[in-house]
């Protein structure tokens, strides 16, 4: 099984530096303070934001006097993966992902503006096909914007992998299973800062630079898509991004 064919195309027909089709929508729910839906290829994530509000009873111990605290919960629908897996809410993988996303947004949200309050970020994965963390972060960014919560900058995330000296951007599930090292990162594009990064697998030190560059470019592409959507503010779908494929 080759990740890149000899003619330079990946398994699904993309070139190594191309993102999957990104589609998004904001304001999907009426009851939540902010909500968004994003599709990156076949990875579909719904995000809902509640807040800022007074800390709920069981979280009262985490209240801070000078800033708000962010509470994040990640859950995957049972039909989201090809094989139906019964996932309980508090399992390790979910908690792990929630913690990472919480950490990501604590760096991006202007928490000092909301002291003594709580912001809830809820993420629901409807269909998972690789790059879960990245789709969740992108969905949460949009939802936070929809909720009107002040942030330092957008947060865009993208994943990349390295095979035979070429870096592949925005990996899907099949490419994840192929066993190469996978690098995901969340970036604030205008400020050009990395607020979260994670590397799975083993690569040589010399190759790290190439991977980081690839991921940064991917994130900037995603930023371009999300930004363009923002300009068309009446919640219609968008299906074009500069470096992704024609629709």
């Amino acid at each position: 099984f080759e990740l890149i064919s000899d003619e330079g195309y990946r398994f699904d027909g993309r070139k190594p530096s191309e993102l999957r089709r990104v589609r998004c929508n904001m304001g999907v729910f009426t009851q939540a303070d902010g909500s968004a839906y994003i599709e990156q290829g076949n990875t579909k994530v719904l995000a809902a934001i509640y807040g800022p509000h007074e800390a709920s009873n069981n979280m009262r111990s985490r209240v801070c006097l000078d800033k708000c605290f962010i509470n994040c919960e990640f859950s995957q629908a049972m039909f989201s993966s090809a094989e139906r897996k019964k996932r309980s809410r508090g399992d390790r993988k979910g908690k792990d992902m929630s913690a990472h996303i919480k950490q990501t947004f604590e760096a991006a949200v202007r928490t000092q503006l909301y002291p003594r309050s709580q912001i809830d970020i809820y993420l629901q994965v409807l269909h998972s096909d690789g790059s879960l963390y990245c789709a969740c972060v992108n969905a949460a960014t949009l939802a936070l914007i929809d909720a009107g919560i002040a942030m330092k900058d957008y947060v865009c995330a993208c994943s990349a992998s390295l095979t035979k000296e070429t870096s592949l951007i925005d990996i899907n599930h099949v490419e994840e299973l192929a066993g190469c090292a996978e690098f995901s990162a969340a970036i604030m594009p205008k400020l050009d800062q990395i607020i979260y990064s994670e590397l799975n697998g083993r690569i040589h030190q010399d190759e790290l630079g190439q991977l980081v560059d690839a991921v940064t470019n991917g994130c900037k592409d995603i930023f371009a898509v999300i930004d363009r959507f923002e300009v068309i503010t009446d919640n219609t779908e968008i299906a074009v991004s500069p470096r992704s494929l024609h629709s």
Partner: peptide, 8 residues
Amino acid sequence: IVREHYLR
């Protein structure tokens, strides 16, 4: 199993 298939 559902996979993406891009046309170029």
